[in-house]
Amino acid sequence: MRGMRSIGIILATSLAVAATGVAVAQVRQEQPTSALKGHNSNAPVDVTADRIEVQDRADRAIFAGNVHVTQAELNLDTARLTVAYSGGKQGARGVQIRRLDAAGGVVVRSPSETAKGDFGIYDLDAKLITLIGNVQLTRGPNIVNGQRLVINLETGRAVVDGGPPGVNSSGGRVTGHFTVPQKNGS
């Protein structure tokens, strides 16, 4: 009888652990991910600006003044943008954009998030967007501040770092402001 009781306890414990695992999996699936998760970095890139300088020998183009970039649902605004590309030589099948370097204040928008920083790098091959300097990531009323933001477009994961201590006003720390869902009743 005692052996049956032990098996019953083990079975009940196993079922509770399995149920908890399912509940955790359901919670994880319901958590919102970045709207940039799965962003198509192969989509066409449209750029408008006040001025363009093409440096063909260096395989780059420099856009300046009110630069606006659109790729699918991603928008980027900045004062200056350097586009590094390959395939611009004769006989090539067209230009392939490899990287966008933004300077002079950068704002990246998706349908649900806005990220700001002093400088930005969009590595199309690695599918990473990096913002550096006075970074702010906003989603609805929630805000995270730091010195570096890296967004992985494949996973939708965004990581904010505070930077080295003593270099900025935050002392090398990440700060955030988050709303708490209100519950009915006390």
Rank of each mutant, 00 (worst) to 15 (best):
N134A: 11
L81E: 00
S41K: 01
T20G: 13
I132N: 05
I97F: 06
A43W: 07
V174Q: 02
G176L: 03
A16F: 13
G185Y: 03
G94T: 11
G162F: 06
R51F: 14
V45W: 04
P165N: 09
G8Y: 09
G117Y: 00
G87K: 08
A72K: 11
S170F: 06
G94E: 13
R173E: 08
G156Y: 07
G38N: 08
A12P: 11
P164F: 09
M4S: 15
I132T: 11
G176D: 02
T130A: 09
V106Y: 01
N168P: 05
R173H: 13
I62A: 05
I151R: 04
V174R: 02
S110I: 08
P165C: 09
L149D: 00
T70P: 02
G171W: 05
L74R: 06
F178Y: 08
D118R: 05
L74V: 05
V107N: 05
A102H: 00
A103R: 06
V180W: 02
A49H: 09
V27Q: 08
N134H: 13
N142C: 09
P165M: 09
I143A: 08
P141Y: 03
G133S: 07
R51M: 08
E113C: 07
G94V: 11
R57I: 10
N184I: 13
V108E: 02
G38A: 10
D46E: 15
N40Q: 15
E154S: 15
Q55C: 05
V106D: 00
T175P: 01
V17M: 12
N75Y: 10
G166A: 10
G185I: 03
G146M: 03
P44V: 11
E113N: 09
G65T: 04
A115G: 02
G171R: 07
F63W: 07
L124H: 04
V27I: 12
T20R: 10
S41I: 01
A103S: 12
R98M: 11
L81I: 05
Q26H: 10
D101C: 04
Q96D: 15
D101P: 04
V135N: 00
D161A: 14
R28N: 13
V174A: 03
G88L: 09
L36V: 04
